[in-house]
């Protein structure tokens, strides 16, 4: 399945209604030709596609669907209703694949509007359950499912998060979404250097990368990083991105998660990402 995935190029994130106050991807694409190739749309089934996502899909442009309502650590959370509705939504969007943070989006039964993301407990048992959930979703929807390393101020478990997702990839047989900003957060919270543990991650399984802004915060003297998706990624995030981009042979897509910002403030970072990858829109089209 992974070998058949298309190279989507460089994309921008969007969430339900994000274009009303943030970036309209179609407008940015028109204003800056060659800057963005695809849209990664994130939502839950309770909200579904917004007008922005529908317009993008109607234009026949590439997309991916980022779910915000599945506890990927709990195989049974992907119940028949969720699988059917998510598959239908992804098809309506024209999504090339599904992705989503590998963690918990809700506590207890799925409910409206929880969206309180937590990372998994980083153990072998948990990784095996996530791999099972991924296989289940992929089989039911017919789409590849890329689990994403989630952000948090607290991580529990005895594994490095990259070792955890290496086990997930091994168990699912599928690909991975590496969020460089989230990894930078993990490394800082655990006292590691930015690239620690990357030698244990099967980089040939990394299909998609995320780059996003973050900011250092202080809670009564406790330093932590907020994954706020502002314009500027942390230096650690850039370091991770550049390291992985140079080595991820199966990479198909990079998303700059910047949908909340003024369009003119994000163009330089899109160009930096393109330059790092050596991907131009024209070269993507010729492949």
């Amino acid at each position: 399945m992974l070998a058949a995935l298309p190279r989507l190029g460089v994309g921008i994130s969007a969430e339900f209604d994000s274009s009303r106050r943030g970036i309209d991807a179609l407008a940015l694409r028109a204003a800056e030709p060659g800057l963005i190739d695809f849209l990664e749309y994130g939502c839950d089934l309770a909200r579904g596609l917004d007008d922005h996502a529908r317009r993008w899909a109607a234009a026949g442009l590439p997309a991916t669907y980022h779910f915000l309502d599945l506890n990927l650590t709990e195989p049974l959370d992907a119940d028949d209703g969720w699988l059917a509705a998510t598959g239908a939504l992804a098809r309506e969007l024209g999504a090339a694949w599904l992705c989503g943070d590998g963690g918990l989006w809700h506590f207890g039964p799925r409910d409206r509007g929880h969206e309180t993301l937590l990372p998994p407990v980083l153990t072998r048992d948990s990784a095996a359950e996530m791999a099972e959930a991924i296989r289940r979703v992929a089989e039911a929807t017919g789409l590849a499912v890329l689990p994403e390393n989630p952000p948090a101020p607290i991580y529990l478990g005895d594994l490095h998060i990259l070792d955890y997702f290496a086990l997930v990839a091994e168990g699912s047989g599928g690909g991975l979404l590496l969020d460089c900003a989230h990894l930078a957060i993990f490394q800082r919270m655990m006292g590691h250097a930015p690239l620690t543990g990357l030698d244990g991650l099967p980089l040939d399984r990394v299909i998609e990368i995320h780059v996003a802004g973050g900011v250092m915060r202080d809670q009564e003297g406790f330093a932590w990083v907020e994954d706020d998706h502002q314009v500027e990624p942390l230096p650690d995030t850039w370091e991770i991105f550049e390291h992985v981009a140079a080595r991820a042979q199966s990479l198909r897509a990079v998303v700059y998660e910047c949908e909340k910002n003024p369009p003119d403030q994000v163009t330089d970072n899109f160009r930096r990402i393109r330059a790092t990858l050596g991907w131009s829109s024209a070269s993507r089209a010729s492949e």
């Binding site: 409910d111 509007g113 929880h114 969206e115 309180t116 101020p153 809670q219 003297g221 406790f222």
Partner: peptide, 17 residues
Amino acid sequence: RAFAVDRLRPRRVLKAI
């Protein structure tokens, strides 16, 4: 202190329910 970095988390849960 790490448990309290997201001071609005409980409020978001209440907002949802």
